[in-house]
Design a protein around this nucleic acid. Structure first.
Lengths: 184, 184
DNA sequence: GTTTGCCCATACGGTTGCGTATGGAGATAG
DNA sequence: CTATCTCCATACGCAACCGTATGGGCAAAC
C-alpha cells in the first residue's frame, strides 16, 4: 500500500473521471477523495486544476497516437482487409474517453486542437485506405469523410449498449456499398 | 420597455444560453443578469432551476417536432428529391441547439429520452425515404443509420465553419452512392 | 383610494469548489 | 542524531450558485 502518490495517479484518476462523467467531473477535491488523500497532495504535484487538465489531455494524446491505426497496420492485409479491421476494432472499442474529449473540445481550445489533430490523422489514414481501393482522390476523400462522420455519430449518439460482437447484416451492406468501385 | 417578464422570456434566454454554451451555462443568476432582473423574478415564475430546464427541453421538443421532416415534405418530390432536400436543409441548418441537447443527454435522462424520441422519428423517416427508392427493408435501414450517424458526426465534430452553400463534389459522390440501387 | 394580485429587489444561509498557507510525518542523507 | 527533502493534512479565505424569506412597487379591480 504505497500511500505516496505521484502525478501518474492523479492523471489516471483524471482520465477515469473524464471518461466516466466528462471534464466537469474532474475536480481536485473529488479526485482527492477518490484517491484517499486531500487537496494538499494535489497542489503539491500540480500548480492548479488547469495543469491537471493539460496533463490529462497530453496523456490522451500520447495514448491516441499509437492508435487504432497501429492496430490495423499490425494485421497486415490489403486495403479492403484493413478497412474491415478498422471497422471491427473501432466498433468494439469503448469510445467514452474520445467522446468526452470531443465534448470538452466544444468549450476548450486546447482540447479542440488536440482532437482536431487526431481527426486529421485518422481521416488521412482512412482516405489512404480508400485510395488503395483504386478510388479517385475525391471519391476517396468523400468516402473517408462519410465513414469518419458516421463513426463519430455512432459514438456520440448512444454508446453501443451492447458492443455488438458479430458483424450484423446491416454492417455488411454498408461495408460493401462503401467498398464498391464501379470503375474497376 | 416592457419590464415585466413571463416564463417565455426565461425559456428563450435558457434556449439561447443552451445553444451557445451548453446546459451548464443556463444558470439562474446568469440569465437574470442577462435579462436585467434578479433571481427574485426567476423564483416567482419557476420552482427551481430544474423546472426551467424541463421547460427548455419541452420548448425544444415542440420545436423539433415540426421539424426538418415537415420542411422536406412541403417540397413534395419523389423519394430521391426528398432525400436531397433533406440533406441540403440539414446541412444548411445551425445545429448548435441539437448538439448541446445531445451533449446534455449524456448526463440527463430527461434530455436523453427527448433526443432518443426525435432520433427514432428521424431515423424512421429516413428509412421510409430509402424504402421509397426500392431498397429492401434491411438495406433501407442500413442506409438510414449510416446517413443519420454521418449527419450527427458532421455536427458534433466541428460545426460547419462555413455552412457551405453550394453542394460540393464530395456531396454528389456520396449522394449517388447512397441512392444507387443495384437491383432495379 | 384602498385592496388585491402580480412581478421583482434585497438580503440571507448553505453548498461546492478553487487556491493558499502552514505545519507535520516519514524517509533519507550527512 | 539531526537536517533536509517529499509528500500530505488542516484550516482558511474567496467566489459562484442555489434556494428562501421578506418586503415593496405598480396596475387593475372594486
Amino acid at each position: 500500500m504505497s500511500k505516496r502518490l505521484g502525478k501518474r495517479e492523479w492523471i489516471d484518476a483524471g482520465l477515469k473521471a473524464l471518461a466516466a462523467q466528462g471534464v466537469d467531473a474532474v475536480r481536485v477535491e473529488v479526485l482527492a477523495k477518490a484517491l484517499g488523500v486531500t487537496k494538499g497532495s494535489f497542489y503539491w504535484h500540480f500548480k492548479n486544476r488547469n495543469a491537471l487538465l493539460e496533463a490529462v489531455l497530453d496523456a490522451w494524446k500520447a495514448r491516441a497516437t499509437n492508435d487504432v491505426i497501429a492496430q490495423v497496420e499490425e494485421r497486415n492485409g490489403d486495403a479492403r482487409a484493413r478497412l474491415r479491421s478498422l471497422f471491427t476494432i473501432v466498433l468494439e472499442s469503448d469510445g467514452r474517453l474520445d467522446r468526452e474529449i470531443r465534448a470538452w473540445a466544444a468549450k476548450d481550445s486546447a482540447a479542440l486542437a488536440a482532437i482536431e489533430h487526431i481527426d486529421r490523422r485518422r481521416l488521412a489514414y482512412l482516405e489512404s485506405l480508400f485510395l488503395g481501393l483504386d478510388f479517385t482522390p475525391i471519391e476517396a476523400a468523400a468516402r473517408a469523410r462519410l465513414v469518419y462522420h458516421a463513426l463519430i455519430g455512432q459514438f456520440t449518439m448512444g454508446l453501443p449498449a451492447k458492443p455488438q460482437s458479430r458483424p450484423s447484416k446491416q454492417f455488411e451492406i454498408i461495408f460493401e456499398m462503401l467498398v464498391r468501385n464501379n470503375k474497376t
